[in-house]
Computed example of a mutant assay.
Amino acid sequence: MTNIMLVDDHDLVRTGVKRLLEDHGEFTIVAEAKNGEEAIDQLRKTDPQVVLMDINMPGIGGLEATPKLLRQKADLKIIIISMHTDELYPQRLLKAGAMGYLTKGSRIDEIVHAIHEVLANRHYITPEIAQRLALSQVDDGGESPFESLSSRELQVLLLMMDGKKVVEISDELCLSPKTVSTYRHRLHDKVGVKSDIELARMALFYGLIENVPFKN
Protein backbone atom coordinates (compact mmCIF):
# COMPACT_ATOMS: atom_id res chain seq x y z
CA MET A 1 0.00 0.00 0.00
CA THR A 2 1.15 3.52 -0.81
CA ASN A 3 0.65 6.17 1.87
CA ILE A 4 -0.84 9.41 0.54
CA MET A 5 -1.39 12.88 2.03
CA LEU A 6 -4.05 15.13 0.45
CA VAL A 7 -3.59 18.90 0.69
CA ASP A 8 -6.47 21.07 -0.53
CA ASP A 9 -8.56 23.73 1.19
CA HIS A 10 -11.82 22.33 -0.23
CA ASP A 11 -13.26 19.51 1.87
CA LEU A 12 -15.30 18.15 -1.05
CA VAL A 13 -12.21 17.87 -3.26
CA ARG A 14 -10.27 15.96 -0.61
CA THR A 15 -13.25 13.70 0.11
CA GLY A 16 -13.74 12.91 -3.57
CA VAL A 17 -10.08 12.16 -4.28
CA LYS A 18 -9.80 10.12 -1.08
CA ARG A 19 -12.78 7.94 -2.02
CA LEU A 20 -11.51 7.37 -5.56
CA LEU A 21 -8.00 6.45 -4.43
CA GLU A 22 -9.11 4.18 -1.60
CA ASP A 23 -11.59 2.45 -3.93
CA HIS A 24 -8.66 1.72 -6.21
CA GLY A 25 -7.29 -0.61 -3.54
CA GLU A 26 -3.57 0.19 -3.45
CA PHE A 27 -3.53 3.52 -1.59
CA THR A 28 -4.06 4.59 2.01
CA ILE A 29 -4.84 8.21 2.88
CA VAL A 30 -2.75 8.72 6.01
CA ALA A 31 -3.21 12.50 6.33
CA GLU A 32 -5.27 15.43 5.08
CA ALA A 33 -4.51 19.15 5.28
CA LYS A 34 -6.21 22.39 4.25
CA ASN A 35 -3.01 24.36 3.58
CA GLY A 36 0.77 24.22 3.66
CA GLU A 37 1.07 24.82 7.40
CA GLU A 38 -1.17 21.86 8.19
CA ALA A 39 0.68 19.72 5.64
CA ILE A 40 4.03 20.46 7.29
CA ASP A 41 2.55 19.60 10.69
CA GLN A 42 0.95 16.39 9.37
CA LEU A 43 4.22 15.32 7.75
CA ARG A 44 5.84 15.32 11.19
CA LYS A 45 3.10 13.03 12.54
CA THR A 46 2.58 10.66 9.61
CA ASP A 47 4.75 9.05 6.97
CA PRO A 48 3.26 9.69 3.51
CA GLN A 49 5.20 8.63 0.45
CA VAL A 50 3.25 10.89 -1.90
CA VAL A 51 1.56 14.27 -1.43
CA LEU A 52 -1.24 15.44 -3.74
CA MET A 53 -1.45 19.21 -3.29
CA ASP A 54 -3.24 22.27 -4.65
CA ILE A 55 -1.43 25.56 -5.34
CA ASN A 56 -3.76 28.29 -4.11
CA MET A 57 -4.71 27.78 -0.46
CA PRO A 58 -5.11 30.03 2.60
CA GLY A 59 -1.85 30.74 4.42
CA ILE A 60 1.03 28.81 2.87
CA GLY A 61 0.10 27.64 -0.63
CA GLY A 62 1.59 24.90 -2.76
CA LEU A 63 4.41 27.04 -4.16
CA GLU A 64 5.78 27.82 -0.71
CA ALA A 65 4.92 24.47 0.86
CA THR A 66 6.75 22.31 -1.70
CA PRO A 67 10.35 23.20 -0.72
CA LYS A 68 9.42 23.28 2.98
CA LEU A 69 8.00 19.75 2.81
CA LEU A 70 11.03 18.48 0.90
CA ARG A 71 13.41 19.98 3.44
CA GLN A 72 11.57 17.95 6.05
CA LYS A 73 11.51 14.74 3.99
CA ALA A 74 13.83 14.72 0.98
CA ASP A 75 12.42 11.56 -0.63
CA LEU A 76 8.81 12.78 -0.52
CA LYS A 77 7.04 12.73 -3.90
CA ILE A 78 4.86 15.79 -4.49
CA ILE A 79 2.22 15.95 -7.22
CA ILE A 80 0.44 19.24 -7.79
CA ILE A 81 -3.23 19.12 -8.80
CA SER A 82 -4.28 22.59 -9.91
CA MET A 83 -6.74 24.52 -12.04
CA HIS A 84 -3.85 26.58 -13.47
CA THR A 85 -2.68 25.43 -16.90
CA ASP A 86 -0.21 28.21 -17.75
CA GLU A 87 3.35 26.91 -18.01
CA LEU A 88 4.65 29.38 -15.39
CA TYR A 89 3.13 27.44 -12.49
CA PRO A 90 4.42 23.96 -13.38
CA GLN A 91 7.83 25.46 -14.18
CA ARG A 92 8.03 27.03 -10.73
CA LEU A 93 6.73 23.92 -8.95
CA LEU A 94 9.06 21.54 -10.79
CA LYS A 95 12.02 23.79 -10.00
CA ALA A 96 10.92 23.74 -6.36
CA GLY A 97 11.04 19.94 -6.37
CA ALA A 98 7.55 18.73 -7.28
CA MET A 99 7.60 15.50 -9.30
CA GLY A 100 4.22 15.81 -10.99
CA TYR A 101 1.67 18.33 -12.21
CA LEU A 102 -1.96 17.49 -12.98
CA THR A 103 -5.04 19.60 -13.66
CA LYS A 104 -8.21 19.49 -11.57
CA GLY A 105 -9.89 17.83 -14.55
CA SER A 106 -7.58 14.80 -14.46
CA ARG A 107 -9.32 11.42 -14.33
CA ILE A 108 -8.56 8.94 -11.56
CA ASP A 109 -6.62 6.66 -13.91
CA GLU A 110 -4.27 9.55 -14.76
CA ILE A 111 -3.82 10.39 -11.07
CA VAL A 112 -2.97 6.74 -10.35
CA HIS A 113 -0.54 6.68 -13.29
CA ALA A 114 1.13 9.87 -12.04
CA ILE A 115 1.56 8.33 -8.57
CA HIS A 116 3.18 5.23 -10.09
CA GLU A 117 5.51 7.40 -12.18
CA VAL A 118 6.75 9.57 -9.31
CA LEU A 119 7.25 6.51 -7.09
CA ALA A 120 9.53 5.22 -9.85
CA ASN A 121 11.44 8.54 -9.65
CA ARG A 122 10.06 9.77 -12.96
CA HIS A 123 8.35 13.11 -13.47
CA TYR A 124 4.78 13.16 -14.74
CA ILE A 125 3.12 16.19 -16.31
CA THR A 126 -0.38 16.02 -17.73
CA PRO A 127 -0.12 16.11 -21.57
CA GLU A 128 -1.83 19.49 -21.97
CA ILE A 129 0.71 21.12 -19.63
CA ALA A 130 3.64 19.18 -21.09
CA GLN A 131 2.79 20.54 -24.54
CA ARG A 132 2.67 24.11 -23.22
CA LEU A 133 6.04 23.64 -21.53
CA ALA A 134 7.57 22.24 -24.71
CA LEU A 135 6.22 25.13 -26.80
CA SER A 136 7.47 27.68 -24.28
CA GLN A 137 11.01 26.34 -24.75
CA VAL A 138 10.99 27.22 -28.46
CA ASP A 139 8.98 30.44 -28.18
CA ASP A 140 11.20 33.43 -28.95
CA GLY A 141 8.77 35.95 -27.49
CA GLY A 142 11.03 36.67 -24.51
CA GLU A 143 10.81 35.88 -20.82
CA SER A 144 7.55 36.58 -19.05
CA PRO A 145 7.75 39.48 -16.56
CA PHE A 146 6.01 37.17 -14.10
CA GLU A 147 9.06 34.87 -13.99
CA SER A 148 10.73 37.09 -11.39
CA LEU A 149 7.87 36.92 -8.87
CA SER A 150 8.37 35.18 -5.55
CA SER A 151 6.06 32.37 -4.44
CA ARG A 152 4.13 34.72 -2.15
CA GLU A 153 3.83 37.37 -4.86
CA LEU A 154 2.40 34.77 -7.22
CA GLN A 155 -0.05 33.71 -4.53
CA VAL A 156 -1.22 37.31 -4.06
CA LEU A 157 -1.44 37.71 -7.83
CA LEU A 158 -3.65 34.62 -8.15
CA LEU A 159 -6.07 35.97 -5.56
CA MET A 160 -6.12 39.42 -7.18
CA MET A 161 -6.90 37.80 -10.51
CA ASP A 162 -9.81 36.03 -8.82
CA GLY A 163 -11.20 39.51 -8.18
CA LYS A 164 -10.51 39.50 -4.44
CA LYS A 165 -10.01 42.79 -2.57
CA VAL A 166 -7.05 43.58 -0.29
CA VAL A 167 -9.02 42.79 2.89
CA GLU A 168 -10.20 39.45 1.48
CA ILE A 169 -6.65 38.52 0.47
CA SER A 170 -5.31 39.49 3.89
CA ASP A 171 -7.90 37.26 5.58
CA GLU A 172 -7.18 34.32 3.28
CA LEU A 173 -3.39 34.53 3.56
CA CYS A 174 -3.33 35.54 7.24
CA LEU A 175 -1.47 38.75 6.40
CA SER A 176 -2.19 42.35 7.36
CA PRO A 177 -3.91 44.54 4.75
CA LYS A 178 -0.79 46.75 4.77
CA THR A 179 1.40 43.77 3.85
CA VAL A 180 -0.96 42.75 1.04
CA SER A 181 -0.91 46.33 -0.28
CA THR A 182 2.90 46.20 -0.25
CA TYR A 183 2.81 43.00 -2.31
CA ARG A 184 0.31 44.62 -4.69
CA HIS A 185 2.58 47.62 -5.32
CA ARG A 186 5.58 45.30 -5.67
CA LEU A 187 3.69 43.35 -8.35
CA HIS A 188 3.05 46.58 -10.24
CA ASP A 189 6.75 47.48 -10.07
CA LYS A 190 8.07 44.06 -11.09
CA VAL A 191 5.66 43.60 -13.99
CA GLY A 192 6.04 47.23 -15.07
CA VAL A 193 2.43 48.41 -14.79
CA LYS A 194 0.66 51.23 -12.94
CA SER A 195 -2.73 49.72 -12.13
CA ASP A 196 -4.51 46.46 -11.36
CA ILE A 197 -6.27 46.52 -14.73
CA GLU A 198 -2.92 46.77 -16.53
CA LEU A 199 -1.61 43.94 -14.35
CA ALA A 200 -4.62 41.82 -15.32
CA ARG A 201 -4.11 42.57 -19.01
CA MET A 202 -0.48 41.49 -18.75
CA ALA A 203 -1.54 38.30 -16.96
CA LEU A 204 -4.07 37.70 -19.74
CA PHE A 205 -1.45 38.34 -22.45
CA TYR A 206 0.99 35.85 -20.91
CA GLY A 207 -1.72 33.24 -20.39
CA LEU A 208 -1.89 33.26 -16.59
CA ILE A 209 -5.62 33.98 -16.69
CA GLU A 210 -8.37 33.50 -19.28
CA ASN A 211 -10.21 36.78 -18.77
CA VAL A 212 -9.76 40.13 -17.01
CA PRO A 213 -11.55 39.80 -13.64
CA PHE A 214 -12.47 43.47 -13.22
CA LYS A 215 -13.01 46.68 -15.16
CA ASN A 216 -11.69 50.21 -14.90
Rank of each mutant, 00 (worst) to 15 (best):
I78S: 03
H185S: 14
R152W: 11
Q137S: 15
L12E: 06
I197N: 06
I115H: 11
M160C: 10
P90C: 02
L20T: 05
R132H: 11
K165G: 05
G105E: 15
N56S: 00
H185Y: 15
D139L: 09
I169H: 10
Y124L: 07
L76G: 03
L69V: 09
K165S: 12
M5N: 10
L159Q: 10
V30W: 03
A134M: 12
A200W: 10
R19L: 13
G207I: 05
L69I: 06
S148F: 13
I108G: 13
A98T: 00
G62P: 15
D196E: 14
L154Y: 09
L175W: 10
A134D: 10
I80D: 06
E128P: 06
I111M: 08
M202Y: 15
I125S: 09
G163K: 07
V118H: 05
T179A: 15
A200Q: 09
V180W: 07
V112E: 02
H113A: 12
R132K: 11
F214Y: 10
M5Y: 03
P213N: 06
V118Y: 11
G163T: 01
L158T: 13
E198T: 02
L175R: 06
H24K: 08
E117A: 10
I209D: 08
G192A: 01
G97A: 11
L76T: 01
E210Q: 14
D86Y: 10
T126M: 09
E168D: 15
A98E: 00
A98W: 00
T103K: 00
E117R: 08
D196Y: 06
Y89P: 06
T46K: 14
D41I: 10
R19F: 13
L133Q: 14
I55E: 02
H123S: 05
I125C: 09
V156Q: 01
Y206I: 03
D162Q: 11
S106R: 03
Y206D: 09
R152Q: 12
G25M: 08
V7R: 06
D171S: 05
L159I: 02
D189Y: 04
P127D: 02
H116A: 07
G61S: 12
D8R: 00
R71D: 15
G105P: 15
T179Y: 14
L12N: 09
P177T: 01
K165N: 12
M160F: 15
K104D: 03
V112H: 02
D75A: 12
G59E: 04
V30D: 02
P67M: 02
D54I: 00
S144P: 13
I129G: 08
L93S: 02
Y206A: 08
S176Q: 11
I78E: 01
K77E: 13
L157C: 07
L76K: 00
H84P: 11
R19P: 12
V156L: 00
R44D: 12
D8V: 00
V138M: 11
T28C: 00
I4Y: 09
T15R: 03
K104E: 04
K104H: 08
D9L: 01
L158H: 13
R44W: 08
L199F: 08
G36H: 03
A39S: 04
D86L: 00
E117L: 06
E110Q: 12
P145I: 02
S150L: 14
V50W: 07
A98R: 00
Q137T: 05
L43P: 12
H113L: 14
Q137L: 14
N211E: 08
T179Q: 15
M53K: 04
G105F: 11
Q155K: 13
R122A: 05
H10S: 10
G207H: 06
I111T: 07
L157K: 01
D54A: 03
